[in-house]
Amino acid sequence: MNEVSKTVAHGATHANSPIFPKLAFWEKIKKQRAAKLSLVVLLLISAIGIVGPWIAPYDPTESNYEAFLQGPSAKHVLGTDAIGRDLFSRILYGTRVTLVVAVMAVGITVSAGTMIGVISAYMGGFIDHLLMRIMDILLALPGIILALAIVAALGPSQTNAMIAIGISSIPSFARLIRAATLVIMSSGYVEASRSIGTPSWWIILFQVLPNITNVLFVYMTLFVGGAILDTAALGFIGLGAQPPTPEWGTMLNEGKDYLSDAWWLATYPGLAITIVVLAVNRLGDALRDIFDPRTQK
């Protein structure tokens, strides 16, 4: 690359940086009480996901034939299930399972969605048209049905659920990223780079991607909540993680047969899901408020 194009490109990222400076980002998060609280809750939950297996008082898959369907007590804080497994230990282990599946699923969504969105916006014309029509077609099916159809083809398992959930969110993610990329594409510095013959890969890698990172981050957070709900939903209907894996949705499925005898089985795993999703969604909303110029005061 020649010197002129480097200067133009550097100027571009530089000129653009005051809009979203990295320090200002943390300052803004610190000012938003909801964002701060959600972030703390999420860090705490992630920590539980990491250290859960070490702090769990019992083995999550070991049955105890002397402790069937026992209610919450000092020995079993959240009670036990139908084969005497400790619910608290299972929820602790389940944190990791649910978070890993959801985050990996969003990883698939983000990598494929970003690639499709950026290429579509950058190339324009026929390729843009073709990619977006394919996305429209996939958007015509509700996300959960798309995920179910993919699980049907691949077979029910935790890994396949992760792949299915990841793929099913690609269309909407790609559309959002395409829109964000189009905004960057219309800016003067990209036009200048293109006019002096900077290669496309360079513009995408060093001008488009750095400038959509904020948007990408916000959408990613907003998608994690949905992915956690879908992971648990697939587990609940028996098409995700398979027993005896302590996944929260699978645990609710096992608990639904004991509604009249053991309320705790159908209560605590659901509460865990709600808390995590609520924290992720609140953080996503707060980040959107911070970055979306339309909602800025």
Partner: peptide, 10 residues
């Protein structure tokens, strides 16, 4: 943020 199946069960 509520899982539909959990609300249903409750």
């Amino acid at each position: 943020s509520l899982p539909s199946f959990w609300l249903g069960l409750i």
